[in-house]
Design a protein around this nucleic acid. Structure first.
Lengths: 157, 157
DNA sequence: GGTGAAAGGTCATTAAG
DNA sequence: CTTAATGACCTTTCACC
């Protein structure tokens, strides 16, 4: 989908103040209410804006540690079966991707501390079909799910 | 922070229907409005709920490809400098972490197609201080930012 | 631009641990 | 005695006409 500067400005505005009323958006952007409504409808329709959702921070629950885990999978078992089993068994997995390369899956996991992280990794290794894991701890998260620069870059093109 | 089943149910409810009025939340949970308000205030205060934000899907903008990129950094330049430069120069980077292990940084990038992904990786490699990169393409994203199981697991404990 | 309606925040009261 | 939930009131603001 093609977006312009107005769309980008609207997304930026909603990112800053998510529950801003339509009227206020229109006022700040200097356009009519109907314009904002139709733009929002288009953005929703094309899946650019999935929805307005509450952002939950695992750190608020005490999960201070983030780690990435590359998982090698026993070829005979199959990705989907392992993926389903992992998703069920390990609530600490927050991201799960099937990837190309040496590893078969890439996970992002959280834990309260180093001890509990070890326990999480142990549980992952115990899931049937998991052949091997390699992990690295996130020392610092510079940003996550950063899309604004992308939106503005796309609008500028 | 310690949360109970009511907190977990509230988070689940808001995740399903993010813009549900407090009154409706209270009705469905079988508690008073004031209770919901005070619980929400506590969750906000402790950083469990960061805020209600619009969820933007890069795929809606045509970014169909996701890739992970491990970056090795020239030790003499320093992480922060490289991180800042990368963040500025490459809008296609959506996640950026400093990690332990062989690589120094772990990135998640998006692109329209394989060609453009190559261009993104090239631009990353050209950033001063970036010594080497290794990347893998996400063939499938099973889920991302999945926190509900974590919340319920925490509440149950 | 006016009107109806509903949301959110605050408060005192009351029950429970 | 402390903590938390309850139900009602009030003010403000949005969506609709």
């Amino acid at each position: 989908m093609r977006i312009d500067e107005l769309d980008a400005a609207l997304i930026r505005l909603l990112t800053d103040s998510p529950q801003l009323p339509v009227l206020e958006c229109a006022r700040r952007l200097g356009v009519a209410r109907g314009t904002v409504i139709s733009r929002l409808a288009r953005l929703h329709e094309h899946g650019v804006i999935e929805g307005i959702v509450p952002r939950i921070d695992p750190r608020g629950l005490g999960y201070a540690l983030t780690a990435f885990c590359q998982v090698e999978i026993d070829q005979k078992v199959g990705h989907d079966k392992v993926a389903t089993a992992l998703a069920r068994a390990i609530p600490e997995i927050v991201d799960m991707h099937t990837v190309t390369g040496i590893a078969d899956m890439q996970l992002r996991v959280v834990a309260h501390d180093a001890d509990q992280l070890q326990s999480v990794l142990d549980r992952i290794a115990l899931v049937p079909g998991v052949a091997r894991t390699a992990s690295s701890i996130a020392l610092r998260t510079h940003f996550s799910s950063r899309v604004l620069p992308l939106v503005e870059h796309t609008a500028g093109a």
